[in-house]
Computed example of a mutant assay.
Amino acid sequence: MKRLSGIYRNRCPVNPKSAPEEGWEKLEGSTWVQDGRPDAPRTVYVFTDPNCPYCHQFWTAARPWVESGKVQLRHVMVGVIRQDSPAKAAAILEAKSPEEALAENEHKYGDGGIVPLETISPAVAEKLEHNATLMTELGFSGTPAIVFRKADGSIGQMGGLPQDAALEMILGPK
C-alpha cells in the first residue's frame, strides 16, 4: 500500500491549459497523503493546508465518497496559510502513518488540529516547497486546490470549496 510518493519526475513549469496530462503526471509524482482506498475508481488530488478551513470543509464533505470506497483523495500537503502551517504539514508527512495523522488533524481541527513539529527535516521542507511550487505552476494561489478527472476523462481544476453540483462533478455520484 502506497502511503506517500516522493518522486519528482519533472520540475519544469506546467501550463494547465496546454498540458493537463503533464500536470496530472506531476501530481502523481508529488508528495501526497492517501485518503481512501487505493483501488477506488476515482482519484482526486487536493492541495491541502492543515490550517485551511475550506480544506477541512472539503475533507468533511468528501467523507461519504471516501468512506464508501468510491474516491481516493490524495492530499498534496502545503504550508501556506499560517506561520505554523509548514510545521503541521510536516507533522502529517513525518508521522508513522500520514493517513492517520491527516485524519487526526481533521478530527481535531476545531481545537487547533495536529501539534506542529518543532523542527522540520530538510527532506520534508524540500517536499513541501516542491508541492507549493507545483500548486503555483498549476495556476492555483490558495487552498483547497483540486485537480480531478471529469466524466469524459479530461482533467478539471477547481480552486476553493466546491459545493452541490461542483462537488458531484469532482467526486462523482454518491
Rank of each mutant, 00 (worst) to 15 (best):
G112M: 00
Y54W: 09
P122N: 07
E106C: 07
A165L: 15
A61E: 05
V76M: 09
H56Q: 10
A101H: 06
G113I: 00
L93F: 05
T143V: 04
M158S: 14
G139F: 01
Y54D: 07
G160C: 03
K127G: 14
L117R: 05
V44R: 00
W59V: 11
G112P: 00
S154M: 15
F47K: 00
Y54L: 07
Q57L: 13
Q83N: 12
G69D: 09
Y45N: 00
T133L: 15
L73A: 12
G113Y: 01
C52M: 02
N131V: 03
G69M: 07
P122S: 08
A62P: 05
T119E: 13
K70R: 13
A132P: 07
P64D: 02
P162F: 05
G153T: 05
Q72A: 04
A101R: 06
V76F: 07
T133E: 13
I155D: 10
S68P: 10
A151M: 10
F148R: 08
T143Y: 03
G142H: 03
I155V: 13
H75F: 08
E104P: 04
D152N: 11
S141G: 15
P50H: 07
G142Y: 03
K96Q: 12
T43H: 07
L138H: 00
Q57F: 15
F148V: 07
W65N: 02
A61M: 12
E104V: 05
G139E: 01
Q72K: 04
T60L: 14
V115A: 15
K70V: 09
G159P: 12
T48M: 15
P98F: 04
T143M: 04
S85T: 05
K108Y: 07
V46H: 03
D49C: 03
E137D: 11
A103R: 15
E94N: 06
E118T: 11
E129R: 12
W59I: 11
H75M: 09
A166S: 13
V44T: 01
D152S: 06
F58Y: 14
E129V: 11
V78H: 00
K88Y: 02
D84A: 02
V124D: 02
M158H: 13
S97D: 04
K150H: 08
R82F: 05
W65G: 02
E137I: 06
G160D: 02
A151L: 11
N51F: 00
D84K: 02
T48H: 12
A95S: 09
Q157F: 12
L102N: 06
Q157V: 13
S85M: 06
A125C: 10
A151Q: 13
E100R: 00
T133C: 13
K88S: 00
G139T: 03
H107L: 14
A132C: 10
E126K: 14
G79Y: 04
H75V: 08
T133P: 11
P98V: 09
A90H: 04
M158N: 14
I120C: 05
T119D: 09
R82P: 04
A165T: 10
A95T: 05
P50Q: 03
G79N: 04
G112L: 00
Q83V: 14
L102A: 10
T136W: 13
I92W: 05
F58D: 09
S154H: 13
N131Q: 06
P86Y: 02
C55I: 08
E126L: 08
A125K: 11
P86M: 03
L134S: 01
N51S: 05
Y109L: 06
L102W: 09
N131I: 05
A91W: 01
